[in-house]
């Protein structure tokens, strides 16, 4: 019977190479997630409020009491920037948890699409959100007295590192999103991990002021390396090894978490 040929005439996966369709799937999923940003009032509000709030609170409430050896706005900028990027990744956890909870996940999984596309869509949307946040942070920074002495190359390196860090933390968040049992959990689990990671770091204070144990953690964890590298590029604090270490950390996290997330996603509940 020729029924199946006639009925499936619309589907022609052979018309393009496989990689074309993987890119197509990722694009469709990314476009979907980006539409969620522009159509969800909550997302837009938090996207604007978070950077503004973090910057103002730290600069003016805590800033007077903290001594870092340099102008605090200059010290703080890289810290707040990285913190906002890290919190942005929580959207991947939440949005993934929402998708898994609703019937739409079954629909996507029953389609001949690349199964990693849904994850990649959410993570790329994180990048887009973080790009918006970045502009707000930079504008806020200048408002509160941030005066960088970075060249264009330095700024490009900062941008590159920001993208790399955002991808790393989003892939980590994707794994969390695949394991949480409820939306509430998706919301707090990101905070429980990201708050300590960004606070026990060089984001707001010199790590030399911390007790020994905390200091050892703070000085050797990836967020500190990323912050130190950015700070050095932007305001000329000593770079040391932090640039190299930041890149190694981020690439390492992506190399482990991305395949792991896809693997967990494909096998989840089958």
């Amino acid at each position: 019977m020729a029924d199946s040929e006639i009925l499936t005439e619309h589907i022609d996966p052979e018309a393009h190479k496989n990689i074309f369709w993987v890119v197509n799937d990722c694009w469709e999923m990314t476009r979907r997630s980006i539409r969620h940003i522009t159509r969800s009032f909550d997302q837009i509000i938090s996207l604007i409020l978070f950077p503004v709030m973090f910057m103002l609170l730290n600069r003016y409430v805590l800033g007077g009491a903290i001594h870092t050896g340099i102008n605090y706005a200059n010290y703080l900028f890289a810290g707040i920037f990285v913190q906002v990027l890290a919190f942005g990744a929580n959207y991947t956890t939440i949005n993934l948890a929402v998708d898994l909870k609703e019937g739409i996940i079954d629909r996507f999984k029953s389609l001949p699409m690349a199964s990693s596309a849904l994850l990649i869509g959410h993570i790329t949307a994180d990048l887009v959100r973080n790009l918006i946040s970045a502009f707000i942070i930079i504008a806020m920074g200048f408002l509160v007295g941030f005066r960088p002495n970075a060249s264009l190359t330095d700024w490009l390196l900062v941008a590159g590192l920001a993208v790399l860090f955002s991808l790393a933390i989003s892939w980590m968040s994707a794994i969390l999103g695949l394991f949480v049992k409820s939306l509430e959990a998706a919301q707090w689990i990101g905070f429980v991990i990201i708050f300590p990671l960004t606070f026990i770091s060089s984001a707001f204070v010199l790590t030399s002021t911390m007790p020994a144990g905390l200091r050892a953690f703070a000085e050797n964890q990836p967020v500190t390396q990323v912050i130190n590298a950015m700070r050095s590029l932007l305001v000329g604090t000593p770079m040391g090894n932090s640039g190299r270490l930041a890149v190694i950390w981020c690439v390492g996290i992506i190399a482990v978490c991305a395949p792991l997330a896809v693997w967990v996603f494909q096998r989840r509940n089958r």
């Binding site: 199946s4 499936t8 996966p13 979907r32 739409i104 029953s110 699409m113």
Partner: peptide, 30 residues
């Protein structure tokens, strides 16, 4: 590639329009 599934609960993207949902599905079906 040969099946269509309609589950027990509407599996539709609520933020997308009806047309966008359909077009997205079409592209995902290649």
């Amino acid at each position: 590639q040969q099946i269509g599934l309609t589950g027990q609960y509407a599996a539709v993207d609520e933020y997308l329009t009806g047309l966008e949902n359909l077009q997205m599905m079409g592209r995902l079906y290649r």
